Amino acid sequence: MFQNLAPAAVDPILSVAEAFRADPRPHKLDLGVGVYRDANGNTPVMTAVRYAEQQLAQTQTSKSYVGLGGNMRFSRVVTQLILGNAEPTGWFTMQTPGASGGLRLLADLIAASRPNATVWISDPSYVNHAPIMRAAGLRVASYPYLDVASGGLRREAFFEAVAGLGQDDVLLLHGCCHNPSGVDLEIDDWQQLASMVSQQGFLPFVDLAYQGFGDGLEQDAAGLRLLADASEEMLVVYSCSKHFGLYRERTGAALVKSAGSKQVQGKLFELARRSYTMPPDHGAEVVAMIIESAELTALWHSELYAMRQRVQSTRHQLADALSTNGMEAEYLCHHKGMFSMLPLSEASIARLRDDAAIYIVAGGRINLAGLAPNKIDTLAEAIVRLAA
């Protein structure tokens, strides 16, 4: 039965994690997998999450099934986090098994609605964007995004590419904290996109996976909201992995704006039933409990602020350390979120791994949120010494 299976494609992120785990060297450093770590190298359970889980353990009376749409209280509070406190019209939100589950669900929705659509992703983009879209049978193309030389946005080329999109095109954007580059669109860029979508009719699709890790919860959703106001139809996928620390709970959501929201809801339920039936409830209930409690919300805000400040501080410290060692990296200070890309060749990445036990994803993406303060100088020295 399975003898003729083609070899599985190597995942560029998970393969780095596997190699790191197999490395016996005690000084090894993992800058690959995108998880937040504190100054001690741990990925903590947030205090607000722990309190909500304790309350849930004491009060939950059943483990029976939730519906196809998942936890509806979760969907309501997530919609508020994304779109603001005003009751949005024309939107349908459902819980999904993480953002990856949401991406596949919405890709299947696109394929069911317009199978000849082309999904446009940034160059570079999150490594799972293209595989998920292709698995749903969709065409994938890329638009210019990162200027490797300057570490900034290829703004003119980006908007020139978007200007050519029409009704058969889906524009997949990162809502904030672009993965892998850390280069975000400015609010004026979002305003220009809003004008273009109303004129050209392409479908905007926003992946919001790091809300609160850039400039703050409201600021990180501001561009998405501008685009939402201008769009008759729109897709959003959302992750609670990073800003709630619920990585293993697979807590995400898919949102669709459409005049035919009831028809969309029915099709999404049908697609979910064929795939995973319903998402896990634990993380969703925790999020709902936190946002519905003023006390837990305030605690979560303070924890998220501290996480964001630590990552921003790490950015500046690494830029300074690289500069001290002779490599200009001031552009790191202008990036947002957990990631940035260093201009490293594949040979340099291999040398860092083999000679210094430093693990970096192909392409040069580094996870600033996984870098402990006492490792910054060591990393900078190794990059300059081995990457030249």
Rank of each mutant, 00 (worst) to 15 (best):
F2N: 14
N4I: 09
L5D: 12
P7E: 12
P7I: 11
P7D: 11
V10P: 06
D11H: 13
I13L: 15
D23E: 07
P24S: 04
P24C: 05
H27G: 07
K28C: 11
K28M: 10
L31T: 04
G32H: 12
Y36T: 01
D38K: 07
P44T: 07
V45L: 10
V49C: 08
A52K: 04
E53K: 13
Q55T: 08
Q58I: 03
T61P: 00
K63C: 05
K63L: 13
V66I: 13
G69A: 11
G69D: 06
R73D: 15
S75G: 14
I82W: 03
L83E: 07
E87F: 01
E87D: 10
E87C: 01
P88W: 05
T89D: 12
S100M: 09
G102I: 03
L105R: 04
D108M: 13
L109C: 06
A111R: 15
P115C: 09
I121C: 10
I121H: 03
P124V: 00
S125N: 03
S125R: 00
N128P: 04
R134K: 15
A135D: 15
A136M: 13
G137P: 11
V140S: 12
V140A: 11
Y145P: 00
D147C: 02
D147W: 00
V148C: 02
S150C: 03
V162C: 04
A163R: 09
L165I: 08
G166Q: 09
L171H: 07
L173P: 01
P180M: 02
G182Q: 05
V183Q: 03
D184L: 00
D184K: 00
D188W: 02
Q191Y: 00
L193G: 04
M196S: 06
V206N: 01
D207C: 08
D207M: 02
Y210P: 00
Q211W: 08
F213I: 05
D215H: 06
G216Y: 00
L224I: 13
L224F: 12
L226A: 13
D229T: 09
D229E: 15
A230L: 06
E233K: 12
L235T: 06
C240G: 10
S241G: 09
K242L: 14
K242P: 00
K242V: 15
H243Y: 13
H243F: 14
H243I: 05
F244Q: 07
R250M: 14
V256R: 11
S258G: 04
Q265N: 04
F269I: 11
L271D: 01
Y276A: 06
T277R: 14
A284G: 13
S293D: 13
A298N: 14
A298P: 01
Y305E: 15
Y305H: 14
R310V: 01
S313T: 13
T314R: 06
H316T: 10
D320T: 07
A321Y: 09
L322I: 05
E330M: 01
L332G: 01
C333P: 01
G337N: 08
M338W: 02
M338Q: 06
A347H: 10
I349Q: 06
I349T: 06
A350Y: 11
L352W: 12
R353N: 14
R353C: 14
A357Q: 10
Y359D: 09
Y359Q: 08
Y359C: 10
V361Q: 15
V361A: 13
V361F: 08
G363S: 03
G364F: 05
G364A: 08
R365I: 02
R365N: 08
I366S: 05
L368C: 03
A380V: 09
A380F: 09
E381F: 11
R385V: 03
A387T: 10
